[in-house]
């Protein structure tokens, strides 16, 4: 167990696959920068891989002060045990106060393993991170500058703020798209520190036999406009109307978990805490009640239009424009109005 180190850096796990940094890692570099500036400390990123050292400058451009590279042929593909060994070794050596990891399939495999070895706390899928003084209600002791780890819980019916008083580092995972990707500043300077970590045979318990990567068919993240449907759409056939609207305005079609779970549309369309997080210029939520898990994935959209028969649906709480009524009548009218403008 590691004691709190208040001079410790704010770290990001730099996830790369086949020599390409994951977007979420760059998003987290920007967040780490904010947190570190508020704490008056430096930022660090751990970059394990085989021959990926050239990625360090991009991490620095996104706000990192020190990139700790670990270059080893056994790190060429992500594997739990060798990567966990790298993280635990470096965390024990440098004792960062915060360590944030992208909540990707890799990050959600890695972070709990690392936290368990260190006996540190870990909060999954945070939708916000903040710094604040917190008094422990049991000991009445005030802890300065703790990381507030904010996430929906209990099926999205509550928002919980989690803290970790004394078993550091304070660890959290954050989903892709939740933190804004800040523009790179190529004039920033930073250090690159080459670290050596021994990867023994016992760490190589898993052998990769075959790997198949599917190209992303739905580009929700890149869409300027998203038309998203929820359980209220009622059927797979009815989703066609949403495709028509998306087609009329050059948008992509998204969905809530309820619509995906009901089989109306594929999981690759899912927006929300489990699914893709988006921030388009315009988000049209149709027949979506607006559970907080869904809202966590879209409420940063610049403009939100909510269409729902239930005027009390929580989606209206985040909407800029609300239309209470039957989408089957509203959408054709909308398409007509758009075509008239074009």
């Amino acid at each position: 167990m590691l004691e709190p180190n208040r001079q410790g850096e704010v770290w990001v796990f730099a996830e790369q696959e086949d020599g390409v940094l994951h977007d979420v890692s760059l998003e987290l570099c920007g967040k780490a920068r904010d947190l570190a500036d508020r704490l008056g400390v430096k930022t660090g990123a751990v970059l394990p891989g085989a021959g990926v050292g050239q990625l360090a400058k991009n991490l620095i451009a996104h706000g990192i002060d020190t990139v700790y590279t670990v270059d080893h042929p056994r790190l060429s593909h992500y594997q739990t045990l060798p990567y966990a060994k790298v993280m635990t070794t470096l965390i024990e050596k440098h004792r960062p106060q915060i360590c944030i990891v992208g909540a990707t399939s890799i990050g959600r495999d890695l972070a709990p393993r690392v936290a368990s070895t260190l006996r540190a706390g870990l909060t999954a899928d945070c939708t916000d991170l903040d710094i604040s003084d917190v008094t422990d209600p049991r000991t009445k002791e005030e802890h300065k500058n703790l990381l507030l780890q904010i996430r929906p819980a209990f099926g999205g019916n509550i928002i919980a703020t989690i803290v970790n008083f004394d078993q550091w580092p304070q660890m959290a995972t954050v989903r892709e798209g939740v933190m804004a990707l800040k523009p790179a500043d190529t004039s920033r300077t930073g250090r690159v520190v080459e670290e050596k970590v021994e990867i023994d045979d016992a760490s190589m318990a898993i052998k990769l036999i075959q790997r198949h990567i599917e190209p992303r068919k739905v580009n929700l993240k890149g869409a300027r406009v998203i038309v998203a449907g929820g359980g209220g759409i009622g059927s797979r056939d009815n989703f066609k109307l949403l495709y028509d609207l998306a087609g009329a305005i050059g948008g992509a079609v998204g969905a809530s978990r309820a619509a995906v779970d009901s089989g109306f549309i594929g999981k690759e369309h899912q927006i929300g805490q489990t699914g893709t997080t988006v921030r388009p210029a315009l988000y049209i939520a149709v027949g979506i009640s607006g559970a907080v898990q869904h809202r966590a994935g879209m409420e940063e959209s610049a403009k939100i239009i909510a269409i729902n028969t239930d005027g009390d649906a929580p989606i209206f709480g985040v909407a800029h424009y609300g239309i209470v009524g039957d989408y089957k009548e509203i959408i054709p009218t909308m398409i007509k109005a758009i075509k008239a403008k074009a």
Binding site: R119, I162, N164, D166
Partner: peptide
């Protein structure tokens, strides 16, 4: 190690 600091109902 993780403690619930605050719960906000939606």
């Amino acid at each position: 190690p993780t403690k619930v600091h605050r719960i906000q109902a939606i």
